[in-house]
Computed example of a mutant assay.
Amino acid sequence: MLAQFGYIGLFLIIGCAFIMVTLGIPAVLSRLTWIVPRKPTKVKLETYECGMQTTGRSWVQFNFRYYIYALMLIVMDVLAVFLYPWAASLGDLGATGFFVIAFFLVIVTVGYLYAWKKRALEWQ
Rank of each mutant, 00 (worst) to 15 (best):
I14T: 08
W123D: 06
V21R: 02
W59E: 12
R31Q: 09
G9H: 01
D77Y: 03
T41Q: 03
K117D: 00
I107K: 13
K44H: 07
P85C: 07
L71C: 03
T22Y: 10
Y7L: 11
S30M: 14
A70G: 08
K118S: 08
L12N: 00
G111Y: 04
G94Y: 02
F64L: 03
G51F: 01
I19V: 14
P26A: 06
F64N: 00
A17P: 07
W34I: 06
T22P: 01
L105Q: 06
A95R: 09
A3Q: 08
A27P: 08
A3N: 12
I14R: 01
F5Y: 08
C16V: 14
Y114M: 08
D92R: 09
Q61Y: 07
F5A: 13
T55R: 10
A80Y: 02
Q53V: 13
L29T: 05
A17L: 15
P85A: 03
Q53W: 04
Y69A: 10
V78I: 12
W34V: 11
I14F: 09
G111V: 02
T41Y: 05
L93R: 07
L79E: 05
F5D: 11
T47Y: 04
I19C: 04
V78Y: 00
L79A: 08
V78H: 00
L71V: 09
Y69P: 03
K117I: 05
A80K: 06
W86M: 09
Y84I: 15
G94C: 02
Q53M: 11
G97Q: 03
L32I: 14
L105N: 07
P37C: 02
T109L: 10
P40A: 00
A17F: 13
R119T: 01
R65K: 15
Y67A: 00
M20E: 13
V60D: 08
G6N: 02
P26F: 07
G9E: 07
E122H: 09
T54Y: 06
W34E: 02
F99Q: 13
V21C: 06
L10A: 12
T96V: 15
V110P: 00
L90I: 14
W59T: 08
G111F: 09
Q53D: 12
W86P: 05
I13S: 04
L10D: 12
P26N: 10
V21I: 14
A27W: 14
Q53P: 07
G94V: 05
L83T: 12
M20C: 14
I68Q: 03
V60E: 10
G9D: 06
P40H: 06
L113D: 01
L2G: 11
K117T: 04
R65I: 01
F82I: 10
V75E: 00
T41I: 07
T55E: 14
V43Q: 09
G91V: 15
I68E: 01
P26R: 07
V81R: 07
G6E: 05
F99L: 15
K39P: 00
V106F: 08
A17N: 06
V106Q: 04
V28H: 09
I35E: 02
G111A: 04
Y7F: 11
F18E: 11
T41W: 04
A70M: 09
F11E: 08
G111L: 11
F98Y: 13
F104D: 07
Y84N: 09
Q124P: 13
Q124T: 03
Y69N: 11
P40C: 03
A115R: 01
E122S: 12
K117G: 05
F18L: 15
I19K: 01
G24H: 05
T22S: 11
Y66E: 02
I74S: 06
A70W: 06
G9K: 02
L93A: 08
